[in-house]
Write a protein that binds this DNA or RNA. Sequence first.
DNA 1: GATTTATGCCTTGACCTTCTATATGTGCCA
DNA 2: TGGCACATATAGAAGGTCAAGGCATAAATC
Lengths: 114, 114
Amino acid sequence: MTQTKSDLPQGTLDLLILKVVALGPVHGYAIAQRLDQASRGVVQVPQGSLYPALHRLEARGLLAAGWDQTETGRDAKFYRLTRKGRAQLEKEAAGWQRLTEAVSLILKLSEGGA
Amino acid sequence: MTQTKSDLPQGTLDLLILKVVALGPVHGYAIAQRLDQASRGVVQVPQGSLYPALHRLEARGLLAAGWDQTETGRDAKFYRLTRKGRAQLEKEAAGWQRLTEAVSLILKLSEGGA
DNA sequence: GATTTATGCCTTGACCTTCTATATGTGCCA
DNA sequence: TGGCACATATAGAAGGTCAAGGCATAAATC
């Protein structure tokens, strides 16, 4: 997996990560796969973006991490959502909703828009 | 007009500006008003974000600027879209579409998502 | 008419945050 | 031995915010 570009606007990545982690404990590498699959290849997060993001989220107390074993017997750092993280997820999801609606309104503007 | 926060993810502002300018020549101040109104107050771009963005877009050749007079007799810098700018607008609008769909897919994930 | 105040309109510079690129390290498995 | 799964660190660019400042017109006050 060669992770090229994601073209995610800054700030969006956190939301997506929180969402994926909310589904159950996962390690970083799996998060990226999950995002790739679920978005049908549109969201491809390079490791250099993913891991710093995870660290930030952990530092902010939104995620908690612990080492554990993968099904295939490897060590990996599993993340789960804290209570604070869940609240943040809801907040960011709502914000995203608001934003996309607003942008949508703007993109539909035509010459007559009061 | 006290412009507080806009909370736009980075990279989105360009798209919105290009869109507004595409409707006809406008000056910066009016662009901000337009965005505010059209988004019903959700998108409030502070001047410190707006003007640097305009300068960047001009430097990239997507906008062309010239001083002119406002209807009320003031001097203002009017921006219009270049051919290159119009192409970029279409490109970014399509990208935004793609992105929102992808994010939407991810946000709808539940435990069963393959 | 003169003075203040508000408002329209533009600019810039220092700072912070996030994304990217890149390089490096380790254990598993073929 | 090599490749893959999984992680880390560092440095840099880009975009956004704040804060401050400047200037012109208009409205309000005296």
